[in-house]
Design a protein around this nucleic acid. Structure first.
Length: 583
DNA sequence: GCCGTTTTCGGCCCGACTGTTTTCAGTCG
């Protein structure tokens, strides 16, 4: 291979190999090992292919000698021999059959060997011909379920995922509805990945307790938001809202509420690791309580704090529960756990737009809104000369804008305005204003807005050129991703972070919930590499200054403390962190 | 396939739900 396979490519290959081994009937732990390794590779901050070439891929947790060799083969030949063999055995479309509910690898393989079903199409035909029911373990009801699922398009496309803000809104509406239906003494809380503040979710998980569990569960059926409910019992209910998004409600006694909330908040990886560590100490953790082998008694916990305390762990905030080292950090008296940044730590916003480009409000309106949020400073950063879409700001206009910002800064008390710009990084790495004009600004954030499909090498050189520019204070939305819509462009982030650390250029966490760019794992790597983070709303109107919360959520998931983020500093200190600062 | 307060083999989190299951395997989260 002339080009190193990216971590994403390696992760995909391991994922596929795990799936193939699963179809082949491998023991579940081997399959899980592949999935765990795939995740570790995907999240690794360094090139795993490069590590493998040096024989060091085993440094990645979850990768041993075997996978080191397989990754090396992938890097050197572009393929893994074991995967080639298995692909010959199982048609590539067989895996899509397992995406249907109730059809896992075992049952899919059975249908393949008995009826030759090797794709969704073949499955549909067999169901229509009523041939599925001829296989032992499959019924007429199953055939109908298959046809109904196929009718809905299940399996043809990945299940839609919802961005976090919408998920939290829906979760809150469901919580309010349940409280109203089930009565005053009902406790309902958001759990699952939304509570962990992930980028996007595939369902809404809720946890409840109260005097009458069955009544709480059946309350779900009465909510306007809910389209249908498939099962109701005293332990919970499953349903979906009108858009099809699944809702999972679990109900516990108040004494077990902490156990259930901890269990249902996940992540699965966190819980598995937590439980494995507990087992080594003779404790068995589940949503019902903690069983002590020594005494044979089960301890229930009304709060999550009690769950972690019983395991001699410091309380772990939900955002950190991803099995990314939080358990080890929580074990040593919690000394390894950071005090996470909060939204209240933010002292200013360094990226917003006004009517001068594509924003909806004036400088003054943005300033007043920022002041109302309690900020000490706000940078006005409209788009630059080559932005296009009728929203570009010419050099002459920017000079006028600088005056306008100065004028509003004079008139509006209680907040400091910075005249700035979100400057385009052109494909050759140059900026679209000249240095003289840039030097007249208080703050420059440079972003890529065009020519996304460059090679990794070219894109990296392009961004590093901007980082090395003495008048660039920060890099905006560094990877260009749009969550669930657009992949990040190819970029050697290790090199980017190293350059940022070397030049004291800040790296943005863009807080727009469509972006959250840098991502949590990347932001964590950036700080580890010595780069300084700035969290910005990228607001295009006064209301969206409030998007800051999603950027802070990403920072928390990245283990960041207030000290890691430049705009938690009061103005006097922040001012000196800018490259623009001279004396 | 990984990994070590069980350390180079023998384990590997835990439970709910579903179907056709009369004792459990498969699937899911």
């Amino acid at each position: 291979m002339d080009r190193e396979p990216s971590n994403a490519v390696i992760a995909e290959a391991l994922e596929e190999l795990g799936n193939l081994y699963e179809l082949d009937g491998a023991i579940v732990h081997r399959v899980l090992a592949y999935r765990k390794a795939a995740r570790a590779v995907r999240e690794a901050p360094v090139s795993v292919a490069a590590l493998a070439r040096e024989g060091r891929a085993t440094e990645v947790p979850g990768i041993g000698k075997t996978l080191q060799e397989k990754i090396l083969a992938l890097a050197q030949t572009g393929t893994i021999p074991a995967a080639e063999k298995l692909r010959a055995k199982f048609p590539p479309t067989l895996i899509e059959v397992t995406r249907l509910p109730g059809l896992g690898p075992k049952r899919a393989r059975l249908l393949y060997s008995e009826l030759g079903i090797d794709s969704l199409q073949a499955l549909r035909e067999a169901a229509l011909a009523q041939r599925l029911r001829t296989v032992h373990g499959f019924s007429e009801k199953f055939e109908q379920g298959v046809l109904a699922a196929l009718q809905e398009g299940v399996g043809e496309r990945p299940a839609p995922r919802l961005l976090l803000p919408r998920a939290i809104d829906i979760g809150q509406a469901l919580i309010d509805g349940l409280r109203q239906q089930a009565g005053e003494h009902t406790r309902v809380e958001l759990a699952g990945s939304a509570r962990r503040m992930v980028d996007s979710v595939k369902d809404i998980d809720l946890v409840a307790s109260g005097p009458n569990p069955l009544q709480i569960s059946s309350s779900l059926t009465k909510l306007d938001l809910i389209e249908s409910v498939s099962s109701v019992s005293a332990t919970g209910a499953r349903g979906r809202i009108h858009s099809g998004l699944p809702v999972d409600l679990r109900v516990a006694t108040p004494e077990q509420f902490g156990n259930l909330l901890q269990h249902f908040t996940g992540s699965q990886a966190h819980n598995a690791a937590l439980r494995e560590a507990a087992v080594r100490r003779g404790l068995h953790v589940s949503e019902h309580g903690i069983l002590d082998d020594a005494t044979g008694t089960v301890q229930t916990c009304a709060s999550e704090q009690q769950v972690y305390e019983r395991l001699d762990l410091a309380y772990i905030p939900p955002e950190l529960r991803e099995d990314r080292g939080e358990l080890q950090a929580a074990a040593a008296d919690g000394k390894g756990l950071p005090t996470l940044i909060c939204e209240g730590d933010i002292k200013g916003d360094l990226h917003c737009h006004t009517v001068a480009s594509d924003g909806r409000n004036t400088i003054e309106e943005m300033a007043l809104a920022a002041r109302a949020r309690g900020y000490e400073y706000l940078a006005i950063t409209d788009h630059s000369a080559s932005h296009g879409f009728g929203n570009h700001v010419s050099a002459a206009t920017l000079r006028e804008q600088i005056e306008r910002v100065a004028d509003v800064n004079e008139r509006v008390e209680g907040i400091r305005l910075l005249a700035g710009s979100e400057v385009n990084i052109l494909p050759d790495g140059t900026l679209d204003y000249d240095d003289e004009l840039l030097a007249a600004l208080d703050w420059v954030i440079a972003s890529v807005h065009t020519a996304f499909s460059m090679s990794e090498q070219a894109m990296t050189a392009r961004v590093i050129a901007a980082i090395e520019h003495p008048l660039v204070d920060a890099i905006g939305h560094p990877t260009g991703r749009l969550i669930e819509r657009r992949a990040p462009y190819s970029l050697d982030l290790e090199a980017i972070f190293a350059a940022a650390a070397r030049t004291q250029t800040m790296i943005e966490i863009n807080a727009n919930p469509d972006r959250r760019d840098l991502s949590d794992v990347h932001a964590r790597s950036a700080v580890k590499a010595g780069a300084r983070i700035v969290i910005n709303s990228d607001a295009h109107r006064t209301e969206t200054l409030g998007l800051m919360r999603w950027g802070v959520a990403t920072a928390r998931r990245a283990w960041l403390r207030a000290a890691d983020v430049a705009n938690t500093q009061p103005w006097e200190r922040f001012a000196k962190l800018r490259k623009h600062y001279r004396g």
